[in-house]
């Protein structure tokens, strides 16, 4: 709600993300330099870290993008008059789906679709669709009906009302859903290693099975930092949306 203005404000907003990136780099350098044994040194290398990080980001962004592209139109659709009757049913199903643990979703998809990157994307997409869909729905439903009436009264058409009134007013809540979805995806993507889709979770799993704390911590710390980093940046964008 407080608009980002001026250099000082920008610095303030960027401080934490830059700090997080800094910590990430320092941690990577530290563990590459002190891998604790030859076996671990083979696994913790710059190229390996880079590869896993990119895999992780790929999983998160592709899935989140797909989720946004499907959930928002779907959310808008079920707020329309024609779908008034089935909307509560869909929302119930969505709420139901959100109580499912991420591991169950990953496991389910793997059981049905087999191993691989595509399965992981599919699981992440399905799972992160839910918060965006729900927030789009509630965000638009929450718009004061008087405002919509006023818009009709001023001669706006349905499409204009959607674009100029409903969506801008619901944007804050929709974006909160996108933020949740992204952060959830970072966590679920860390489990994608179990279905052979790589990602930073690889380090954690290998670290645990080899009983090497250095490998484990490289993965755990970087995953945690990535989640906090994305959450912070998206949080700042969310706060700059003026309702």
């Amino acid at each position: 709600m407080n608009k980002i203005t001026g250099k000082k404000q920008l610095m303030k907003v960027l401080l934490i993300p830059i700090l997080i990136i800094g910590i990430g780099i320092v941690v990577s350098i530290y563990y590459v330099k002190n891998p604790g044994g030859q076996m671990a040194a083979n696994i913790i290398s710059y190229s390996n870290i880079k590869r896993r990080l990119i895999e992780h980001l790929e999983l998160v962004f592709v899935a989140t993008f797909l989720a946004i592209a499907t959930a928002i139109p779907l959310g808008i659709l079920i707020t329309r008059k024609r779908f008034k009757k089935i909307a509560p049913i869909i929302i119930t199903v969505v709420n139901f789906g959100q109580t499912l643990p991420s591991l169950a979703v990953i496991g389910l998809m793997m059981g049905l679709l087999g191993l691989g990157f595509k399965t992981a994307i599919f699981a992440l997409w399905i799972y992160s669709l839910l918060p965006i869909l729900r927030n789009t729905y509630t965000g638009i439903r929450k718009v004061d009906p008087n405002i919509i009436d006023t818009a009709y009264g001023m001669g706006m058409k349905k499409m204009q009302i959607l674009w100029k009134v409903e969506l801008p007013l619901a944007l804050y809540i929709i974006f909160a859903g996108i933020r949740t979805a992204t952060v959830v995806n970072v966590g679920t993507a860390a489990l994608a290693t179990f279905i052979g889709a790589g990602g930073l979770g690889d380090f954690i799993v290998i670290g645990i099975s080899l009983m090497r704390n250095t490998i484990l911590l490289t993965g755990a710390i970087l995953t945690a930092l990535l989640a906090v980093f994305l959450d912070n940046i998206l949080g700042n964008i969310e706060n700059s949306i003026i309702v």
């Binding site: 952060v183 970072v186 966590g187 679920t188 860390a190 489990l191 979770g201 954690i204 670290g207 645990i208 704390n213 484990l216 911590l217 993965g219 755990a220 710390i221 995953t223 945690a224 989640a227 906090v228 959450d231």
Partner: peptide
């Protein structure tokens, strides 16, 4: 709120050196 954003598998991992498995 920061803890909430940390993926669970990572948080378990972070505690392993201190608390073991």
């Amino acid at each position: 709120s920061i803890i909430m954003t940390i993926p669970s598998i990572a948080l378990f991992g972070l505690f392993i050196p201190i608390l073991g498995i």
